[in-house]
Simulated scan of single mutants.
Amino acid sequence: MSGRRQDADARLVRRTTWTVGAWMTAAATLLVVAVLVAAASIVLGQIPLSSLLDRRHHEEMIDVGGLDALAGVVVIGVLAIVLACALSLIVTRRAVAPLVDALARQRRFVADASHELRTPLAVLDTRLQVLERSLSADDPQRGIVAELRGDSRRLIAVVSDLLDSLDVAPSGRADPVPLAPIVESAVSSIRVLAEGADVRVTAAPIEPHVQVAIPPASLHRALVALLENAMKNSPAGAEVTVTTAAGHTQVRIAVTDQGPGIRGIPPERVFDRFAHADPPAGDRTGARTGFGIGLSLVQDTAGRFGGGVEVTGTGPDGTTITITLPRARHGRGDAS
């Protein structure tokens, strides 16, 4: 199935390439023809067509005044510019049409999937709420049920955030939210997976007054993606750490692993969808490390709210990926 999908994508790219190339050739041809027609009109203005085609009559030169030549050059130049602009618009529209269609299909898929997931998740959360209420206060399973309900609420928030992300324009504004609870929640969510991989996940303390201008669900989703990537690239017994540095206008959240580092591709390319790095040294399987779409979504999420993400360090001792977000100011209690 994957091979057939890749073949279809390759055929689409080739077909689009040939189409764009044909349109560019046609545009260049029309531009050349227009210049030739303009030049021919100047010649025919001096020499009648009958005389020009008469082999017995040979014209050595044509007489064009300086003002006429200047006017002709200006007219030809203006017509060439107008024609080039018109053809460029047509060719560009033809070239980006497949991209527009692909984006539309992607948005429709995300919207349909999110809408379909909302109702089952709401039912799941309601049933967990009923189960939680049915347990006595001293029941040892009550804490686990509470955690499950918290996970379901976060999943509902992620689905809502996916619907919000369909707006490709930058959001620009978001209510200030405390950073510490979001980081703690993301670390708690990934610890369940990290324990199975024998990887420790820790977070440095964050001042309670530090706030960021991004929806909690968006930031939680981005941090979980970073932590999951760090966990997958860490050997057994390693540690993944989250540190925060709050500046005057920005907050930097760094996720550091103890993996082998990014190998085989430039560090900035790990944010490309389905980017692959070389396997660690000594790995006999030859399997390439994949980054999936998680880091790409992190980049999209940070960018939507005026932030960014980058690889701030990578080497044999580990990799650090840092999210930068606008710091929110909310009142007198906020210190720099």
Score class of each variant (00 low, 15 high):
R288Q: 11
R118N: 07
L121Y: 03
A26M: 15
P178L: 06
G264I: 10
L166E: 06
T322L: 00
R4S: 14
T92Y: 08
L163H: 00
Q211C: 11
R327H: 07
S165P: 05
S2T: 13
D9F: 12
H209I: 08
D300K: 09
Q299A: 15
E184W: 03
L49V: 10
A281C: 00
A238I: 03
I144G: 09
L87N: 08
E268W: 06
D300F: 07
A137R: 15
P260L: 02
V240T: 09
S189N: 07
I293S: 08
D334N: 12
T92R: 08
V75S: 04
I293R: 07
T16Y: 03
L12Y: 00
A40T: 11
A186R: 05
P260T: 10
A22P: 01
L223D: 02
T324V: 15
F305W: 15
A39L: 12
A245C: 00
S2Y: 11
L89K: 04
G45D: 05
T320N: 07
I190C: 09
I293G: 05
V32Q: 03
A22E: 01
V212K: 05
V251W: 00
E195N: 01
E147F: 04
R149D: 10
A287M: 11
R191A: 12
G308L: 02
D167F: 01
I81T: 13
V100C: 02
N229K: 06
L67F: 13
E207I: 01
A104S: 14
F271C: 06
H248C: 06
A204P: 14
G150E: 12
L148H: 08
S165R: 12
I262D: 00
A146M: 02
I206G: 01
A236P: 02
T244Q: 09
G303D: 06
E59C: 03
V33M: 07
L219G: 05
E147A: 11
T19V: 10
R200Q: 15
R200C: 05
L124D: 00
S41D: 13
L31C: 09
I265H: 13
G3R: 14
L226R: 04
I323D: 03
T244D: 01
N233H: 14
I265S: 03
